[in-house]
Simulated scan of single mutants.
Amino acid sequence: MRLDLDGVTVEAAGARLVDDVRLTVPDGAFVGLVGPNGSGKSTLLRCVYRALRPDAGAVLLDGDDVHAMPPRAVARVLAALPQESSAEFDFTVTEVVAMGRLPHRDRTARSDREICARAMTATGVAHLADRGFLSLSGGEKQRVLIARALAQQPKVLVLDEPTNHLDIAHQLEVLSLVRASGLGVLAALHDLNLAAAHCDLLHVIAGGRIVATGAPHDVLRPELLAEVFGVHAHPLRHPVTGAVQLLFDLLPTAL
């Protein structure tokens, strides 16, 4: 399933938070959004998963405007992991993951259990099945929420900083799992090295606008990173994968 953002614009209090953003996530591609804090990444993703309606433009799934589609129809094909998720009640991990099955009318108790079990095993949370969600660490909660998104069996995943709270091993495991899922993925990532290692395509966003698009090795150039992030980047190649990796220094300050 193809996801298109066609001229998405968001304004608030007279400020343009997202400005005429156009991008495509082809079926099965892992597309990353990178940019400094406050650049508009989360606002843009909120438009995609219907938490926010854009002031102009459209978000399209195979040509259909998500904001004109019934919520259940969207939930059957698009799953989202927002940057911040809260729970008021202490559901068990099994119950939280099972919420991902709610959009599917054709489900059965047995199929739901099997799908949820596979998602929990894949994300390494099966041993937490009977634990209360509120008792978990931040990293454990994040992996449970990713399991819930996978249990939804979407065609498109929208992830806002999915590696928040995860240790390095689980960061690599989760992104490798997402990449191997075959789903179309649009993810905001703050770690440029993780983005370079896992994304097929990167969009750099600054001031609400996309300022660069391309393969990671084409986009993560020192001059662009200096302009957008205010850092001096030293690109290297990963000795095993060949992916571009970056070392950083602060830019020298003028005397």
Rank of each mutant, 00 (worst) to 15 (best):
D160P: 01
C199D: 04
K141L: 05
A233S: 14
A197N: 12
L159V: 03
A151I: 02
Q152G: 09
A197W: 00
L224Y: 09
V174S: 13
E227F: 06
T241K: 06
L194D: 05
V211P: 04
L192F: 08
P154C: 04
I205N: 00
L177H: 08
A169N: 15
L189T: 01
V174P: 00
I210E: 00
F229E: 10
T213E: 14
L175I: 07
P162S: 09
H203L: 04
D160M: 06
L225M: 15
L189N: 09
V228W: 02
L157R: 02
A212W: 08
G182I: 10
R237T: 11
R209K: 15
V240C: 07
H217S: 13
V228L: 14
T213Y: 06
G208E: 02
P222H: 13
H190P: 08
L202V: 07
A180C: 12
D200Q: 10
L186H: 03
Q142F: 00
P154G: 06
P222M: 04
S181T: 12
R143N: 05
L175M: 15
E161T: 10
V158R: 00
Q153D: 14
G242D: 11
N164T: 14
L194R: 02
G182T: 12
H170N: 15
R148P: 01
L150C: 10
A226I: 10
N164G: 07
E173K: 14
A197G: 13
H198C: 12
H232Q: 13
A149S: 13
V174F: 04
L246M: 10
Q171C: 12
L172G: 14
L192I: 08
V219K: 01
A147L: 04
A187G: 10
Q245I: 06
S176W: 04
L220I: 09
L194K: 02
D160R: 03
G182L: 07
L157V: 09
N193L: 10
V244C: 08
Q153C: 09
L150G: 03
L172V: 14
G230N: 14
